[in-house]
Amino acid sequence: MGQPTSTFQFLGLTFNLANIISVLVACLIVFLLVFGLSRHISMRPGKGQNVLEAIVDFTNGIVKSSIPGEASKSLGLWAFSLFLFILISNLLGLFLHVDISGVTYVKSPTADPVVTLTLSLLTLTGAQFLGIESLGYKGHFTNYLKPFKPFIIVNIFEEFTNFLTLGLRLFGNIFSGEMLLSMITSMAVKGGPLMWVVMFPVEMAWQAFSVFLGCIQAYVFVTLASVYISRKIELEE
């Protein structure tokens, strides 16, 4: 990563303080957002409820487009939470980046591979469970033998590549965005007042692009995750 981080040991596990604080902040923001929007829920929606319902419809649409039938209903909550968490995590680092004496404490949680790979692991492990739940052990594991038996190597390998690509795609996009942002900032700070003036619109433009990228990546992550799940809960022909 290059950046120095503060770590501590607890119960024999290593914790990165920057990740923990960032994830907590992101969770808090998501919770407060959802909590604030879900007050006064009524038959005639108010402003907050309208926004919340739009997001719910959006994530439900993502899930329904790849998972047909009843299974999509139970995954709505999962898609909604995942989308909001990744979205807020992507945007968090754009306006909140806390460095104290060179040690990062708050940044985008998704700019760290640990967080993104954890989310991807969570999703794909869930997909395995859902696959067993809907097809049974036999149906689930015979899916690995399709279209014919030697494909088991490809199929198992695919599970790992899915896990890595899903997590690292998100990480790469957000990390590179933040990196460029901090480079622009350091150039502006070190280059004197003239450089500061020149770099200001560049920074603004890159921030805007990062916001766009963060939204796209959150959408892509949820879409791909639901596609992976849909492949697990359906019998392959």
């Binding site: 990740n19 923990i20 994830v23 959802v34 929007l37 909550l77 909604f80 939470s81 760290d112 692991l121």
Partner: peptide
């Protein structure tokens, strides 16, 4: 990059708790 196992567990737990809270409060 260093992958810290503690972070993974923490992220998982916090995400699961977040899902639970969202389900309770809004979903």
């Amino acid at each position: 990059a260093e992958l810290y196992t503690g972070d993974m567990i923490f992220v998982m737990l916090s995400f699961v708790v977040l899902v639970f809270l969202i389900s309770l409060v809004a979903w």
